[in-house]
Design a protein around this nucleic acid. Structure first.
Lengths: 146, 146
DNA sequence: TCCTCTAGTTGCATCATGCATATATCTTTA
DNA sequence: TAAAGATATATGCATGATGCAACTAGAGGA
């Protein structure tokens, strides 16, 4: 059977958002689920939070926000800042909220995948102090249950 | 302070491998840490294992293996198969083994990031049944501890 | 003979990222 | 007052990885 990655079910909308391994888009939607924020503020928050690896690129954040707005996951209005230049304040749409739920489900799956990897890693290191050995093929406990 | 992603410390070697969010490369190295395998077999194993999201693209796997060989993480020899065409059998190098350790450490960090995200998600959904509300700014419990 | 499974490779389009850079406003400091 | 710096958003470009199609090729079965 040939390899195909395109999902067969018709839940293809936003598939690209669910495919991503990063927590940038989920993080943005999650923050916006708490309260409306503007881009610069979102960047600050993401950098303070522990679910983004390093400091995130502002350009990437802004571009992601615009794309999400194109896809009707968020909407924005310009708002004069109390100080500094005007801000584009984003808020979540119903669609965005639904997608956030799916992203969270995704994150759970992903966490399980990471745990499976780490378990197998620990198992591999257990009886084998770095010396290559001939492990038997994977057993059922390590079998796909996704 | 301007955004920069380039790591300042001199552990830059293989940084690209540690930056990736996917478990493809870690999975390959982990399987090879158990015993030498050829590409097709690795693909089968990855597809049976639970740490890869969907069926993985053979082309991507093969190309990753070649790149890893270029980077001296694995080495390969051709081996006549008992049946079917010849196989390129890969085994892990010392470098690859060291990188695998770093990838595992990375995976731990990412798991924590996912947990932080899921925790904040649960907290956000707790007192707020989907209705947008004005959450206060993030508190110290949600602050970066990476 | 034809088909399928096994096994590996290459080309190509696409997409997202990282980084540099540009812009504009407001505040602070020299 | 002028320069510098923080705030705030946006665009251009190179790079790199992926997804998919297509191709080669051997071995075994119908």
């Amino acid at each position: 059977m040939a390899y195909r990655n395109t999902p067969e079910d018709e839940n293809v909308a936003y598939a690209a958002y669910l495919r991503g391994e990063q927590l940038l888009q989920p993080g943005l939607l999650l923050l916006l689920a708490r309260r409306p924020m503007h881009g610069y503020e979102l960047i600050q928050s993401l950098n303070r939070l522990s679910f983004h690896p390093e400091e995130c690129d502002p350009a990437t954040v802004y571009r992601n926000l615009r794309r999400m707005e194109d896809d009707d996951l968020v909407r924005s209005e310009w708002q004069a800042g109390e100080s500094g230049p005007a801000r584009r304040v984003y808020h979540l749409t119903a669609e965005g909220d639904r997608l956030l739920n799916m992203m969270a489900a995704n994150a759970q799956r992903r966490r399980k995948q990471l745990e499976a990897f780490l378990t197998l890693f620990a198992d591999t290191r257990l009886d084998n102090g770095g010396v290559p050995s001939n492990k038997p093929p994977l057993r059922e406990e390590e079998t796909k249950t996704q």
